[in-house]
């Protein structure tokens, strides 16, 4: 709602699936940038990607929904999220 500032969340998103395509990490970075979500990829292997995120809750939700589908050459099985602290105080 207008005039209602949202505290940014800090979360760790863990993506599981068949993720060995080179396309996915840059795809995540682009999608996060479009949404205005700050990201840092802390782990990347063929079956797991971990990302630390900071941004508005709705925008992190949107990043999760986008990643669930992802580019055509990856298959995302599950996405887990957990808070890692509150940047907004």
């Amino acid at each position: 709602m207008a005039g209602e500032a949202q505290n940014p969340l800090k979360e760790r998103m863990t993506i599981h699936g068949e993720l060995d395509a080179d396309s996915f990490v840059p795809w995540i970075r682009r999608h996060a940038a479009k949404l205005g979500v700050t990201q840092a990829i802390t782990h990347h292997s063929p079956d797991r990607i971990e990302i630390d995120l900071s941004g508005a809750p709705e925008l992190i939700d949107m990043l999760e929904v986008g990643c669930l589908l992802g580019p055509i050459d990856v298959w995302v099985e599950t996405i887990d999220r957990r808070p890692v602290g509150n940047a907004g105080g």
Binding site: H31, M62, G66, L68, L69, P71
Partner: peptide
């Protein structure tokens, strides 16, 4: 590939 779209939770059926 939803790269040019910004699906939300309301779009979960479509996703």
């Amino acid at each position: 590939d939803p790269g040019m779209e910004m699906p939300t939770r309301a779009d979960l059926t479509s996703v």
